[in-house]
């Protein structure tokens, strides 16, 4: 098992393997750690102007206090 944090300059809906996982951002405005099983996953955000449009990563086992970062840029 692992945890990821998906970063983008504004709140977006996160998709892992084409399934919505809710918003990238918590109500507090901070990024949200997401539960994920380790291994290969495809990450995507809702809406336009996202670079890259999607990315497939091999997520390593990570403890909750050190989640694996998944970075998207605004373009």
């Amino acid at each position: 098992m692992s945890y990821v944090v998906v970063r983008f300059p504004e709140p977006r809906e996160v998709y892992i393997d084409d399934e919505s996982q809710g918003s990238s951002t918590a109500a507090s405005g901070k990024p949200r750690a997401l539960f994920v099983n380790a291994g290969k996953h495809t990450f995507r955000l809702s809406g336009a102007s996202v670079d890259p449009p999607e990315q497939t990563l091999n997520v390593p086992e990570r403890p909750i206090l050190n989640p694996y970062p998944v970075e998207f840029r605004k373009c």
Partner: peptide
């Protein structure tokens, strides 16, 4: 219960709140 590898993943439901 332990990942996204299911048509009814609990991780997904928890992540969705």
């Amino acid at each position: 219960l332990s990942g996204q590898d299911s048509a009814w993943s609990l991780y997904t439901k928890i992540n969705q709140g």
